[in-house]
């Protein structure tokens, strides 16, 4: 849920990166962090295990600029993708304004993608949200790897509603900002509708 502050003339929106373990959610945020000017970002917080798996969340606050005299801030969060961290994922989803589903394009992760997307729907529904009504984009990540499922197949399995989707290689940064921009745009359009 966005936070509109007329006193400080700011809009804050929360975007959550979701997806199976090791699909590249944290890598997306790290790339955004590294490529964003100092004055446009805050500290990136990663609550991670010693092996750098997300334990609770990553958090990156971005200040993108002004719209109609309002400072626009996006708070980016990632969830922990590992199946057994479901309780934490539910908490991170609270008050979400937009979701990025990061799919792992590798063939052997096909089932994990489908399972994670189902889990996203379930967890949203538990809070009275419907994925179809939320600003939502899909990123097919790790396109650089040799054992990728074709985009057509991924699309037919993961994106029946034809939300905006894009290919990416988060480790090199390809597609990362395109993804962020796509979801931010949907969030702002939603805000315009008075969501």
């Amino acid at each position: 849920m966005s936070f509109i502050n007329y006193a400080s003339r700011e809009i804050n929106c929360k975007i959550v990166y979701y997806g199976p373990g090791l699909c590249g959610k944290t890598t997306n945020l790290q790339f955004i962090y590294n490529k964003t000017a100092q004055d446009a970002k805050g500290k990136m917080i990663s609550l991670a295990t010693e092996t750098e798996r997300t334990l609770f969340f990553d958090f990156l606050p971005l200040a993108l600029g002004e719209i109609r005299g309002f400072k626009t801030r996006f708070h980016l969060y990632t969830v922990p993708g590992q199946v057994f961290y479901d309780a934490s994922r539910k908490l991170i989803l609270k008050g979400v304004d937009g979701v990025v589903f990061v799919a792992d394009s590798q063939e052997e992760r096909l089932d994990a993608n489908i399972e994670s997307l189902e889990n996203l729907k379930d967890n949203l529904e538990e809070q009275g949200f419907q994925l179809e009504k939320l600003p939502f984009v899909i990123q097919y990540n790790k396109r650089d790897l040799p054992n990728c499922t074709s985009v057509e197949e991924l699309r037919s399995l993961l994106n029946p509603d034809q939300v905006p989707d894009m290919e990416a290689c988060a480790s090199s940064g390809e597609g990362v900002f395109e993804t962020l921009k796509a979801v931010a745009k949907l969030v702002l359009i939603d805000l315009k509708k008075g969501g």
Binding site: M1, S2, F3, I4, N5, Y6, A7, S8, Q127, G128, F129, L191, G195
Partner: peptide, 17 residues
């Protein structure tokens, strides 16, 4: 209560209070 999808809004008057 606020609906789960509505925005939290802050106005000058309440902010001052």
């Amino acid at each position: 209560m606020l609906g789960s999808q509505s925005s939290l809004v802050m106005y000058d008057e309440e902010y001052q209070r």
